[in-house]
Amino acid sequence: MKSIFFLLMIAGSLCGCGSDSPPAVTAGRSLTDSTGTAFSLEPLPSRIISFAPYITQNIYLLGAGDKLVGVTKFCKLPAGEKKQVIGDLLTQDIERIIQLKPELVLATKEGNKPEVVNQLKGLGIRVFVLSEANSWKDIRSGFMQMAELLGKTADAQKILEQLEVRLSAVREKNALAGSPSKVFFQLSEQFHTAAKDTFADEVITQAGAVNIAHNAVGRWPMLSAEEVIAQDPDLIIIPLMGNITEQAKAGWEKFPLLKAVKSNKIVIADADLCCLPTPENFVGLTELISEILHK
């Protein structure tokens, strides 16, 4: 028993290191994914399956939507588009995937199960595993990786340049503002929120504000109502999640002394904008927060 445990520990420590930092985008004709698998960039894939809503959004952003043959249940498609659904984030319909004969499957390291990735690889399907991206820098490099795989580097660079311009406009505005405002990003009725190393936290920082849960333990902590009240945020953002959202908003209105309630800064925002780490959403949400705070 003991020796098995020891072996597991060693296996864990060996495999754990080295794979965390996103690999640099190589200039050659191949690209390495977060599992260390090298991919040649030629020929360009014409049948792609996306394993995450943000990947699907990025593919459309890059203008490669026509190459997409399979998406997840949660992927939002532009009006009129219809794609084969291959499952959700955790369970994928392997049979359907085989039938679609994809030339490339784009998966995420954090969102998709490694077992599924291995299973597909065992079936001879090419799976590129993107590493998780939350900060602007990582989102940019992940986006560029996808662009390289799809042969859309020039388009991607143009998109990123335009987004940079919008971001620097926000930064200029921040420089004029006084002390940073406090933001609470509410994910559930139980006050689940996003702490550091998350998309929401990075966006709040870029918008020149402070995430009140930045230093909480864990990445998705559950704060107490007392703590939120004590911190007295200037802005409460609630991603739209059905009935719960309105209830959560109504819940805060029982505390008329809170700054966010007084100035009517409890904002229900689009869930995709808040949670899908695409470059466009990053900038969009940053602008939204900055705009509300500096109104």
Binding site: L8, A11, G12, C15, G16, E115
Partner: peptide, 10 residues
């Protein structure tokens, strides 16, 4: 413990 034993992890 993010140990990676592939299909064997869980």
């Amino acid at each position: 413990m993010p140990i990676h034993l592939g299909a064997w992890t869980t």
